[in-house]
Write a protein that binds this DNA or RNA. Structure first.
Length: 876
RNA sequence: GCCGAUGUGGCGAAAUGGCAGACGCAACGGACUUAAAAUCCGUUGGGCUUAACGGCCCGUGCCGGUUCGAGUCCGGCCAUCGGUACCA
């Protein structure tokens, strides 16, 4: 291909315009107070999810979203907006560190090289970023403020009364460290003794390290945590008004996993202690025939009887050898052992055995459950396996049993009553031979306090009783866990924390940035100590104090980069107040679904903390979110080295040009949809652009491109005006709707309509070039310039033109073709005057010979007239 | 399991409840050319029928419903893809 003649000289014009845009600072957005800032202009902040600059360079997936936002950015500029469209680098991260371990090359160098490569690639595609706002999370000028934000989080707490983050100074309790939004806790991590490091869950496969296949065990280690759970309620509620895809909102809600229920306290037999469980079904309390604690629950040691001590210890050892993944993967079959201890069911007074099992997680609820096998699938499976009592306490049915009072009727009666009302298959089986758990709502039975009550009311009643007796209370639980915020890595932001006498303390803001020490050896130390421990001088903060050795996770930098873009040079504040007030929030945020939960949740969390502390004026960062779909290989499979189906954007650009690449990415299909790449498709779009080129240009004898002699200053004819204005209308509404594929299709219709005309009105082509400019900016700019050489216009830059407005009057036709239907089937199409009244259309239809033919011998029952569309004659 | 998305020609896809398949690809035919490429013009959902112009029937994953009219709305299935997984 590259040896073939180019359909138009994109290889010359694209670099030319890219250089010119840079020189003219065309895409630089002025901040309030800057020279050239126009307060009358509305603002528009359109943001891409910034990339991790990997060694592999860009793939075709990146530019899909970037092209979409670029079209919007260029369009909004035409529309008179002050557009903020920035780009930067999420540059801390593991690959650079691992590369450093292998080669000894400092991650900073690797990162710099990768950033340079990415930037070259992005520039070659012609994106209209304001490069003067470029940021990298690894710049000290940037991570200084990442550390500063951490300090704000560290120095605040969540006041449950105001439901807001507040400075720690407003906390009046004894132990501020127990309520800080950043705190230290012992949490279990994946520890690989052989590699001497902690591994992420994704790095552990079947209980072995992904690298080397060494055994991995879970072991508690001291970690920094962020108290995101305090914001769970607000993270759900404040999601509601955002203009995000419903699916993403749902994903976040499910991740936060709110469930309402109650805590119930079970007394332990022969002990002053009690076990508190969380349940969403307190109405099934009478059916709790056993209890299960998580193996890690500290109560286990105190409950276990001497006879069971060895069994329990063995089981715990077995469990701790399993990784999280293994523990859940192998969850096909329930396991567990009896502790020997018993508790008392507070409702029934029955004595119930206490077990431990790994299907109960220490990290959710209270790390203990009441086992209600008749009404919970997992409990049912467990009870079956270990032959525990199964007691039915909810019967199918919805209406309360007539005449049944509260807790007075014998349970047997109400059970019989509800069966009579709505028989269910399994209730025919005698008690103890229940075939499966009934987990739906129904009517309480065998539960004296709440018999005959429907589930909702039974829950309410039993909670009231528990609260009255001091045995429990209504609570809400979340799946969301606090955010494990520390990593034992080198290439990340050091914590602005020092330790002295076993206590942590924050650095002051003027000690920032805290720069990581220069290291030659980035390898894990083998002891579990982070690599920073090697830098002994750096670690010593003072005579008595030493620095925190962990670093922050990669998420930290991406939690607030959209704020820094508003004011990237500011040396005295993470973002200037005026800049933040002017630019925030992000009007359009485009990126992949892979960040639907973590990044977007973490960023919202930080934003809310900063908002509560009055550093920001907005409560949410991203007003509108759009996810682009994945681009698959030509074979319909996910692009990967393994399949050899990876497409390199630069290869495509070398053959067809950046404009064709951009347009093809948008023409493939709807932005949000997953779709396969097709080189033939690129070819087609490239042909379209070449046709646009030849609409204005022709070759002279010498083979040079010159302005076409078909161009004239004449006015477009009626047919042409219709196409022009239909195109303005469709392209405009389609861009607003992010429906770029159909916008391009309409421009193709335009070009087809003008391709073989003898004379081409310059006016029509000017309009086309402006409409095309957001999609194919190099081509449109070049042609505009060429056109201006012979047909000057003021202002003479395409980017200074107003966006065209369509005029309805050019779209209306005198005649319109409508369909005549008989009984819903189209029988003939006829041309009718646009002004024809419904009555006229009706009689016209009935008089039509074709219609006559089909209604012959039938009685016309009804005639439906849709003016401009069709007439449907209903007859039988 | 659960949650979500998607099912329309040979392919990527269009269609405020109102003429299904716009636009593009591929394929085929034609023009130009010594020839090819490029370019331009045309045909192109399937079946039946006609010498031809035409005409008829079927068709948006499957089954049903609402409606004068359903790719679109409702109910029930099936398939593919993605996410998630003992969350009490």
């Amino acid at each position: 291909m590259s040896d073939r003649r180019k359909p138009y000289p994109f290889d010359v014009i694209e670099p030319k315009w890219q250089t010119r845009w840079d020189e003219r600072r065309l895409f630089h957005a002025a901040n309030p107070g800057d020279p050239g800032f126009d307060p009358a202009q509305p603002k528009y902040y359109v943001l891409d999810m910034f990339p991790y600059p990997s060694g592999a360079g860009l793939h075709v997936g990146h530019p899909e979203g970037y092209t979409a936002t670029d079209i919007i950015a260029r369009y909004k500029r035409f529309r008179g907006f002050n557009v903020l469209h920035p780009m930067g680098w999420d540059a801390f991260g593991l690959p650079a560190e691992q590369y450093a371990i292998r080669t000894g090359q400092h991650p900073e160098i690797t990162t710099r090289e990768n950033v340079a490569r990415f930037k070259t690639q992005l520039k070659r595609i012609g994106f209209s970023y304001d490069w003067e706002r470029e940021i990298a999370t690894t710049d000290p000028g940037y991570y200084r403020w990442t550390q500063w934000i951490f300090l704000q989080i560290y120095n605040s707490w969540f006041n449950p009364e105001t439901q807001r983050a507040e400075p720690i100074s407003t906390y009046t309790g004894d132990d501020p460290d127990s309520v800080r939004l950043a705190y230290v806790a012992e949490v279990p991590v994946n520890w690989c003794p052989e590699l001497g490091t902690v591994l992420a869950n994704e790095e552990v496969i079947d209980g072995k390290s992904e690298v080397g296949g060494f055994p991995v065990v879970r072991r508690p280690m001291r970690q920094w945590m962020l108290r995101i759970t305090a914001f769970a309620e607000r993270l759900i509620d404040e999601l509601e008004p955002l203009d995000w895809p419903e699916g993403i909102k749902l994903l976040q809600r499910n991740w936060i996993g709110k469930s309402a229920g109650s805590e119930v306290r079970f007394a332990i037999e022969g002990s002053a202690e009690a076990i508190t469980v969380f349940t969403t079904r307190p109405d099934t309390l009478y059916g709790a025939t056993y209890m299960v604690l998580a193996p890690e629950n500290p109560l286990v040691a105190r409950l276990t009887t001497n006879e069971q001590r060895k069994t329990v210890a063995d089981y715990k050892a077995e469990i701790s050898a399993k990784s999280d993944l293994e523990r859940t993967d192998l969850a096909k079959d329930k396991t567990g052992v009896f502790t020997g201890g018993h508790a008392i069911n507070p409702a029934s007074g029955e004595r119930v055995p206490i077990w431990i099992a790994d299907y109960v997680l220490m990290s959710y609820g209270t790390g203990a459950i009441m086992g209600v096998p008749a009404h919970d699938e997992r409990d049912f499976e467990f009870a079956q396996k270990f032959a525990l009592t199964i007691k039915q306490v909810v019967a199918r049915g919805s209406a309360p049993v007539p005449g049944a009072g509260e807790g007075v009727s014998p349970s047997r009666t109400s059970l019989a009553g509800s069966i009579a009302e709505k028989p269910a298959p399994e209730t025919g089986a005698p008690p103890g031979e229940i075939q499966s758990a009934f987990i739906g709502d129904g009517v309480a039975v065998n539960s004296p306090l709440i018999d005959a009550l429907p589930t909702a009311e039974a829950k309410h009643r039993i909670i009231a009783w528990l609260e009255e007796k001091g045995l429990g209370r209504r609570t809400i639980n979340y799946k969301l866990r606090d955010w494990l915020f520390s990593r034992q890595r080198y290439w990340g932001e050091p914590f602005p924390i020092v330790w002295e006498g076993g206590k942590h303390r924050a650095l002051s803001a003027d000690e920032l940035p805290l720069v990581p020490p220069a290291l030659d050896d980035f390898k894990p130390t083998g002891t579990g100590e982070p690599p920073l421990s090697r830098a002994t001088d750096w670690v010593r903060h003072s005579e008595k104090a030493t620095r925190e050795l962990n670093t922050m996770p990669q998420w930290a930098g991406s939690c607030w980069y959209y704020l820094r873009f508003c004011d990237p040079e500011n040396a005295s504040r993470f973002v200037g107040e005026e800049a933040e007030r002017y630019w925030m929030s992000v009007d359009l945020y485009v990126g992949g679904t892979e960040h639907a939960v973590l990044h977007l949740l973490y960023a919202r969390f930080w934003h809310k903390v900063l908002f509560d502390l009055a550093y920001l004026t907005t409560n949410e960062p991203f007003q509108r979110l759009v996810n682009q779909g994945m681009i698959l290989g030509e074979d319909g499979r996910k692009m990967s080295k393994r399949w050899g189906n990876v497409i390199d954007p630069l290869d495509v650009i070398a053959d067809y040009g950046a404009d064709a690449f951009r347009c093809y990415e948008m023409f493939m299909g709807p932005l949000e949809q997953m779709k396969p790449w097709s080189m033939n498709g690129v070819e087609g779009v490239s042909r379209f652009l070449a046709r646009v080129w030849r609409l204005l240009m022709e070759e002279n004898q010498a083979g040079e491109w010159i302005l076409s002699s078909a161009l004239t200053e004449t006015a477009p004819d009626k047919g042409q005006l219709r196409v022009i204005h239909a195109t303005i209308k469709k392209v405009t509404t389609d861009i607003e709707a992010l429906s770029f594929n159909t916008a391009i299709a309409q421009m193709m219709i335009f070009v087809n309509a003008f391709t073989n005309t003898e004379t081409r009105p310059v006016e029509a082509l000017r309009t086309l070039l402006v409409l095309l400019n957001p999609f194919a900016p190099h081509l449109a700019s070049e042609l505009w310039e060429s056109l201006g050489a012979k047909f000057p216009i003021s202002p003479n830059e395409i980017t200074d033109q107003p966006w065209p407005e369509h005029r309805e009057e050019f779209l209306v036709e005198h005649e319109v073709e409508i369909a005549l239907q008989v009984n819903g089937k189209v029988r003939v199409r006829v041309s009718v005057p646009i002004a024809a009244t419904p009555e006229e259309l009706e009689s016209l239809a009935q008089a039509n010979p074709r219609v006559q033919e089909f209604i012959a011998g039938l009685t016309v029952r009804k005639v439906v007239v849709i003016p401009g569309k069709l007439v449907n004659v209903v007859a039988n």
